[in-house]
């Protein structure tokens, strides 16, 4: 049996969506700006994009690139970050280079990478890979650095080798922090995906979005915003599911407000 409170809690994100759409609808009715369609108009334009075969293939191609870039980045960055966290020399070696690269917008490298690898999937996947890698390395590094020395000592006393300690102790202990990095990485992957496609102007969701903007098809612009937004929300929800599974032990009691209020 579900009480009214849990029901409200379950549906809260949906209510929030509806609320935000209502604010949009209201704002567009008040502003009466030609280039700002109402929420309902934008939602009406969504099906026509999703049933258009070209557009659908474009969007799916975007997602595929993102998935590949993201997966490669995790496979590369987590081990690197953990090693940096546990070895001073490794950290000293890589840290400055990474600090130099981190604030550079990876999508801005598109024009240069395109010259080398063309405008195809490889360039765009590479750019996403770079975009995701840095936060994941950085957070794995911080997480591994913060692992309590005494836990590793007990591991060593139990006869674990250095490699085993990294996998069996450092990885799980740093996992909450690593996942924070993955979440930032996910945000950056979406930003990078859209802007790189916008710069390459060849295919993908970002391309449709900015082409529509250039051609003044404002319904399509806002419909694409909804589609991309839904992509972000779904990916985040999926991520959150996995995260909750993995780090249940470290969950703070988020539902419990501070007891002084």
């Amino acid at each position: 049996m579900m009480s009214a409170a849990t029901l409200l809690k379950r549906t809260a994100p949906v209510l929030a969506c509806v609320g935000l759409l209502a604010v949009w609808q209201f704002a567009s009715l008040v502003l009466k700006n030609d280039s700002f369609p109402t929420a309902i108009e934008a939602i009406r334009a969504v099906p026509s994009i999703l049933t258009d075969k070209d557009a659908l293939i474009n969007i799916l191609a975007s997602l595929r690139r993102m998935a590949i870039g993201f997966a490669l980045a995790l496979a590369f960055s987590i081990p690197l970050g953990l090693m940096m966290g546990r070895s001073r020399a490794v950290a000293a070696f890589f840290n400055p280079l990474l600090m130099v690269i981190y604030p550079v917008p990876k999508a801005a490298l598109m024009p240069i990478i395109m010259l080398w690898l063309g405008v195809g999937d490889v360039s765009k996947t590479l750019v996403i890979f770079l975009g995701v890698s840095l936060p994941v390395i950085y957070h794995s590094f911080e997480g591994a650095k913060a692992v309590e020395e005494k836990m590793l000592w007990s591991g060593a006393a139990m006869g674990l080798s250095a490699g085993q300690r990294l996998v069996r102790i450092v990885l799980p202990a740093a996992l909450p922090e690593i996942l924070t990095g993955c979440r930032t990485g996910l945000v950056l992957a979406l930003i990078t995906m859209i802007t790189s496609e916008m710069i390459a102007r060849q295919s993908g969701a970002g391309n449709i979005l900015f082409n529509a903007l250039d051609m003044g098809q404002y319904d399509t612009v806002f419909a694409m915003i909804i589609i991309v937004g839904m992509m972000g929300i779904c990916l985040d929800a999926a991520f959150e599911r996995i995260r909750a599974r993995l780090v249940r032990w470290s969950e703070p009691q988020f539902d419990m407000p501070l007891s002084f209020s």
């Binding site: 809260a12 994100p13 929030a16 969506c17 935000l20 502003l31 700006n33 280039s35 700002f36 996910l186 945000v187 979406l190 930003i191 995906m193 859209i194 802007t195 979005l209 900015f210 903007l213 404002y218 612009v221 806002f222 694409m224 915003i225 991309v228 937004g229 992509m231 972000g232 929300i233 990916l235 985040d236 929800a237």
Partner: peptide
């Protein structure tokens, strides 16, 4: 929950228009 994962660059066209 809804706004955080939304890629804000996608909102940029809307911001430009507004």
């Amino acid at each position: 929950r809804v706004l955080a994962p939304l890629p804000k660059v996608a909102l940029y066209p809307a911001l430009l228009l507004l």
